[in-house]
Write a protein that binds this DNA or RNA. Structure first.
Lengths: 223, 223
DNA sequence: TAGATTGTTAATCGATTAACAATC
DNA sequence: TAGATTGTTAATCGATTAACAATC
């Protein structure tokens, strides 16, 4: 029992990991064996100490003077995120956004595999989108249980989001990647991760407004 | 000069505003005149005090016992986010995701108006996606300046992201909504807001892994 | 009035940053 | 060795939460 207590990385730390991973894979392609926190921080305009803390949170140890072994870092992050193993997912709502996600080839690198899509639109049911079949929504519960699906990707109209999510969590699905603008209310224990375009756009809008106001006041002063 | 100093809301606050706005519009449709921070908090599993702080940060004042006037809240948030005014944007990369964003009708409610798309793919150039024309990328600088476009939406392959962003900021574009997985490095003053799918998926993956491990240990104990 | 809700002021919490000894 | 980089410990910063008087 001399092992260190495994510190669970904070949410901000987890969110930075994919960015590190991306760079590390680049470095590996360039046959770089070592990388320092200084270098990583430089590339992303972060503080070296923050990078070290992030890596330390996953239990990775570096070598003074040399830094970290690139291959080890990649392995540790992949392991930590579970991106070595494939996670099967159902996508619900085969509209514009849903189709785009089905067609996104990058998910393979994250271990995410969308194996079927579902919709209520008869014109979509039975078709294939990027070679993924679209099933009627009624078939989801049965298929989810039989195929041991735990993750649902929600890309349907806001109006249907909550009701559909309620249905999903009655099946084997216990985690939802929510691309709708709806804040889902679900039983405790259900994981919901929201991709919040409106929140992102709000930040952007604020920044733009602020910048605009600054420019205005600047011009006023100059005039 | 007895006016209160206008406190700029924090980033987390700004990110919560669209969620409030959504609920407030619902309440308005139901002809609710007042709403309390308690009610809003309840609906989103937040603390009432946090809601009050968020609203206070925008300079909104409520009425003890009654709460806040729904219409006033909506107006204040819309005003604060600048979503009353239309922001014109160019979209660069008319692939799956780009097309999905062009087709997303919800942006109108955020004052966002995608007026043209750009691509380097000859098979896309000249076509229309949801009635938006796709132009060759070379035409962007001239058009951006002439149409006074300040916002670019980046939905192209990662490999082209940085170079294209570098080009964009040479035009009238000073803000980028970045949907690529690349962390863009751009001159100071340029606004970049990233929609980070990888980060979001990382959080989801972690939660799933944690839950899985908990279940495993639970089963072990029970066995 | 009584009581629900607001806004203010202070306390807590957690993430980031700083300082620096330890290491190879 | 000298020096770059690590990991630890402490300080700072900012957001959230708590407590409570003010208000209608």
């Amino acid at each position: 029992m001399t092992e260190k207590a495994p510190i669970t990385p904070s949410l901000p730390t987890v969110r930075r990991l994919p960015t590190y991973l991306r760079l590390l894979k680049e470095l590996q392609d360039e046959n770089q064996q070592y990388v320092s926190s200084t270098y990583i921080a430089d590339r992303f305009q972060l503080e070296p100490i923050q990078v070290r803390k992030d890596l330390a949170a996953m239990g990775i140890v570096g070598q003074p003077r040399l830094g970290f072994v690139v291959a080890d870092l990649i392995a540790a992050i992949m392991q930590f995120l579970g991106w070595n193993n494939t996670t099967k997912a159902f996508l619900i709502g085969a509209g514009n956004l849903g189709s785009a996600l089905i067609g996104y080839s990058g998910f393979a690198g994250y271990g995410l595999n969308i194996i079927a899509a579902f919709d209520v639109d008869n014109s979509k049911i039975g078709t294939r989108i990027h070679n993924i079949e679209v099933f009627p929504l009624e078939k989801l519960p049965d298929l989810a249980v039989r195929l041991h699906i735990h993750l649902g990707i929600l890309t349907l109209p806001a109006a249907a989001a909550q009701a559909t999510a309620d249905m999903l969590v009655q099946t084997s699905i216990t985690a939802i990647w929510n691309f709708t603008p709806v804040k889902l209310i679900l039983p405790a224990g259900v994981i919901v991760e929201k991709v919040d375009l409106a929140a992102s756009l709000a930040v952007l809008s604020c920044s733009l407004k602020e910048k605009f106001l600054l420019n205005m006041s600047g011009e006023a002063e100059n005039g």
